[in-house]
Design a protein around this nucleic acid. Structure first.
Lengths: 180, 180
DNA sequence: GCCGCTTGTGCAACTAGTTGCAGAAAGATC
DNA sequence: GATCTTTCTGCAACTAGTTGCACAAGCGGC
């Protein structure tokens, strides 16, 4: 399970409060490890309990008030170990591929519209990734190891979206004209 | 959630007992919607309860004895509706991409070996898919709609594995020589 | 005829992730 | 200065998925 590692990574990149983390998950880390604010708050509690992060000293420790967290040495070490650990890839789960297989059995009525909708979503995501690439990784900035690695991650996201766009396009062609 | 749909699809393709389903998940449907035997037994119970499948009449309804299930009309209808339903793609979750991002922060020690291990696994999966394609979808068999759709699904699997093989190869190059 | 192995089904207890809601604090509106 | 809205944190209850184990039936050997 990788949520604690995702949070530690985000906190090392920049100490944050729970809500800040949630927002950053929505537009960065969350692109390949999504989490709701609920998961994040709960995990922050566990990580603090385990001595891997701590809340920055603040005047009043009251509910409804932002709490900034930073990573402790134990947390950094925990993350460092995980980077080199053996962990098998989780088997793929795609409801869309499954649906197409179901369509082979009960007919493909209505599937075309869904494929078009997904195609639009993946195109949008692809555009977003490309915008990020232009903004954060112009050719001249791809030098230090950290940046090279982060750029690789983004390239992974881009190529995955490209895969979906291509597959969906092929599927739509194969499915034939609308209202066949 | 798609497990019931996966099971209905599998049962429509061929009525089976719980264990048979488990085996078929391990080498077919499960490639894009995996499930353990536990999940399958539990879901079979629910589907039977809901009147979407039924156990074929058997002499003795005892524990430890195989039970064949077949899909009832209500189950088929349920699946048919799902094929055309709107359902957003679930956000990507890749522990490996996440790990690379963590590596950008705490260093990439040990990561290279993991990338190589994953590369081998994805290559093996790719080979398996290709063998299935040759066996089940020779060029002359890709005619009826059901077969065309099933082949599309398999092509999706193949291209996804190809994506990983290419990305991992690029990542290893980018990471530089071993023991940098 | 019993002993151990495999096949098949399933319960129980766990971890991970989701959804709905609530309450405190602080700024915005009148 | 009363109320309204937004921000931020969090509890509670749920669904999905995993892991470990148990128990029955059949089969094979001896």
């Amino acid at each position: 399970m990788s949520l604690p590692h995702a949070i530690l990574t985000a906190l090392l990149e920049k100490p944050s409060s729970g809500l800040e983390l949630t927002r950053r998950f929505d537009k960065s880390i969350g692109y390949f490890w999504s989490a709701t604010h609920q998961q994040i708050y709960r995990e922050l509690g566990r990580l603090e309990e385990a001595g891997q992060i701590r809340a920055l000293p603040s005047p009043v420790p009251v509910r409804g008030q932002r709490k900034e967290y930073e990573v402790l040495p134990a947390g950094r070490e925990f993350l460092r170990e995980w980077v080199g650990a053996a962990e098998d890839p989780k088997p793929l789960r795609s409801a869309l591929l499954l649906r197409m297989r179901a369509a082979a059995v009960v007919g493909s009525a209505g599937l075309r519209a869904e494929l078009e909708r997904h195609l639009a979503l993946h195109r949008a995501q692809l555009d977003e990734y490309r915008a990020i690439e232009e903004r954060d990784f112009p050719a001249e900035r791809r030098t230090g190891e950290p940046d090279r690695l982060r750029h690789l991650v983004l390239r992974g996201g881009i190529d995955l979206e490209r895969f979906w766009v291509e597959w969906l396009t092929a599927a739509l062609t194969e499915l034939g004209p609308p209202e066949e």
